[in-house]
């Protein structure tokens, strides 16, 4: 039979610290993408200022039915143009794609390997060697 592992008792300070540590990590990962977004927003604003021409329904080339639905939603040509001209950029940066794939696969491989090691300890203590 494998030796029974008796874990140490955690005090109040340790319990509070551990809870706050995980929370701090979450907030950090929520904020991190904002640093990159701030740069993107600045360049987008510069681009929009360069092509600032007041749009009309005619210049947007919409059918009468589509224009009517925009108007029912409370939009004029200028407000509608802001949405119509907003586009996603799906240009793929292969370097970032590879980095993301490696991080994702690496994360799962690391987790499975360490979990397997820990699981063997659990099974050994539960069922014996």
């Amino acid at each position: 039979m494998t030796k029974h592992y008796e874990p140490p008792k955690q005090g109040w300070f340790g319990q509070i610290f551990d809870s706050l540590f995980v929370l701090a990590l979450v907030y950090l990962s929520l904020m991190l993408p904002l640093l990159f977004k701030a740069k993107e927003a600045a360049s987008a604003a510069a681009g929009a200022a360069a092509e600032a021409v007041k749009p009309t329904w005619e210049s947007l080339q919409l059918s009468p039915v589509v224009q009517e639905q925009w108007e029912k939603l409370g939009y004029d040509a200028e407000k509608a143009a802001a949405l119509i001209n907003t586009k996603f950029d799906y240009t793929i940066d292969p370097v970032w794609l590879v980095i993301t794939a490696v991080v994702l696969i690496g994360y799962f491989v690391f987790m499975l390997k360490v979990s397997d090691k820990e699981y063997r300890q659990v099974i050994a203590e539960k069922f014996g060697k």
């Binding site: 991190l32 996603f88 360490v114």
Partner: peptide
């Protein structure tokens, strides 16, 4: 990854550090 690549990496970083 298409449009939210930074968020994807940031969230993965959270789970890696937590692990």
């Amino acid at each position: 990854f298409l449009g939210y690549g930074t968020s994807l990496l940031s969230i993965l970083a959270f789970y890696i550090v937590a692990s």
